[in-house]
Design a protein around this nucleic acid. Sequence first.
DNA 1: CGTTTAGTACTAATTAATTAGTATGCGAAG
DNA 2: CTTCGCATACTAATTAATTAGTACTAAACG
Lengths: 123, 123
Amino acid sequence: MRRRSSTLTEHELEIMKIVWLHDTSTVRDVYEALLEKRKVAYTTVMTMMKVLEQKKYLKKSQAERAYVYRPAQPQRQVIGAMVRDFVNRVFNGSASPLLVHLVEEHDLSREDLEEIARLRRKP
Amino acid sequence: MRRRSSTLTEHELEIMKIVWLHDTSTVRDVYEALLEKRKVAYTTVMTMMKVLEQKKYLKKSQAERAYVYRPAQPQRQVIGAMVRDFVNRVFNGSASPLLVHLVEEHDLSREDLEEIARLRRKP
DNA sequence: CGTTTAGTACTAATTAATTAGTATGCGAAG
DNA sequence: CTTCGCATACTAATTAATTAGTACTAAACG
């Protein structure tokens, strides 16, 4: 069989990114934002948002016309869990080899690193 | 439909990690290494390695008894592609917010950062 | 030489992820 | 009041990922 992903899948994440930008979103809101990036059917977005609600990433509340959705978990926390999952899966839980990759292949300026180091120095 | 993953899936990665540790591996080698971590059938490993060969992550060559597999791409490169994919998907391609996550939640020592910064300073 | 063993090919089943159509209902507009 | 448009629920199809069984083959072993 196939285990359900413990983190957001690619298209779920795409939707959550849109939802996190606003306080509340309807299916139509998300649908229209998503259309700017790629072709998709309204009902597809609806189905995915229903799944996201079942997975506890979204909360649904009844308004007059359409359902109103809002994030059930802060972006920070969800993305953090994705990073942790990635580090576990790919680097057996140790973050520094990932750091090396980032520095060597992702055009991080020395300023970026100093900025980060400064953050780290005064907790 | 569902697009084929452009990077290694969870269990594919698990197998590749074992293969990268050695020059050559048979299905049995990988099967036995994998068994230490979790229950799995021999033929499951075989099927997955066949898939990995089709996806060009493994090269197969005929030996006397069993097929001998070796990595078709260096670990460095494959993991690098996974990091890039992750950064693109989760952080819209920018690495520094990922850095912030790592520093704030992944127990990176100041030494780690200084080590990295040193790498970065003298290219 | 016959039997046990290991390896492969083939087949197939299950579930998650993704996509979208159809039917139905309700409120708005005329 | 009737029609139109939007929203939802339900249904369903497709594909990838994952797992593993069965049958066949060749080699090793006695």
